[in-house]
Nucleic acid binder design. Sequence first.
DNA 1: CTTATCTTGAACCGATTGGTTCAAGATGTG
DNA 2: CACATCTTGAACCAATCGGTTCAAGATAAG
Lengths: 203, 203
Amino acid sequence: MAGRKQFDMDTALDAALVQFWRAGYAATSVDDLSRATGLNRSSIYSSLGDKDTVFLRCLDRYATRYGGRYDEALSCAAAELPAAFRAFFGVTLDRIADPELPDGCLIAQSAMAIPTLSPRVAAHTKEVLGFQYVRLHAALKAGGLNDHDAGTFAVHVAAVNQSLAVMSRAGASPEQLLAIVGVTLDALSQASRAPGRPPVRSG
Amino acid sequence: MAGRKQFDMDTALDAALVQFWRAGYAATSVDDLSRATGLNRSSIYSSLGDKDTVFLRCLDRYATRYGGRYDEALSCAAAELPAAFRAFFGVTLDRIADPELPDGCLIAQSAMAIPTLSPRVAAHTKEVLGFQYVRLHAALKAGGLNDHDAGTFAVHVAAVNQSLAVMSRAGASPEQLLAIVGVTLDALSQASRAPGRPPVRSG
DNA sequence: CTTATCTTGAACCGATTGGTTCAAGATGTG
DNA sequence: CACATCTTGAACCAATCGGTTCAAGATAAG
């Protein structure tokens, strides 16, 4: 028919994603998005939608991209549970080590900001976090853990994974991040080796 | 001399603290502080300082208040290491369970927002986080762990403690939060029982 | 009551917020 | 070229942002 799109939607969304990822929702203005994407203010509203919509798209983009990598890492859980979870944390650690990407985690950041987010965005954030729990729980059961242990470790691993974002932003070294996940991986292989004994005793 | 202060500084600072704690730095305006404290806009600037200063005061207030409780919890580390750390996490869990206080953790929130904070506030946030690490490291050594293990568990415990804030904001149940710390406490008592063997093997 | 201090409300500042509208220009197709 | 689409810059809106100033009022000590 006529003039095609002159900007790359993927590139623009990636730029917006990095902006939100670095500064968070509240500290990112539409002008910031305009600067980051190189798109005009009006183009953002006509092509990407309002701030909330852009943020939701970025959340989905982030979740889809890294969710796939997490799935891949966990795919060998049935055969080698500890190795699978070492790979799982490796996805996060690699992302943190990438100098082109912001530290932290967009999901964790959004979770912290939930009380200030619109109901739409808040609900979506919780949904994405729930997905990760399901993913982890399935992998742990595939690895031979019983239902209770799988639930325990799933929420623990999810929490530790989120904490890497906080600690990296606080200036933790790669060695320190490795130490954080090391304790968890050790506990996991212990539980994996002795599947009969409940690994968590609160007494 | 003349007219005394007519507002309670402690009450006002507590109100400001809760506001920052709930909404974070970026999502809190000076008007929000005015509403929360009940103080007039001009009174805030004359009595509490500008936004950055008020935030710094709240950070200190938060750190002092809960830091003391953490110290108290860890005081029995030399005698009963696992019990001390169960009490340590208990401080955080009790705070989360308190319906009058916001979920999450002001320090963790500030750490996530570091890229958007002023250098002054960012540096202070890192400082406060460093204090907690030192506190944990000392307790772990007092409990009999060697230097390497103490460093490993100190950063792990600090990370897990921060993660409780994220997970609670994301809607995690008290049982799930208990499961998160349960894995860590189990790994710790394991290491405490076998102090010779390094509890973290990355192979 | 006088006086010195504290507190208040309100106005003001320039800048920025999220969001909308529109006319002009760029683009590539037919 | 003519046409339809896409993109742009700019202006505009009401609202809010952080920050400052100041005169009026409240307060309690002397």
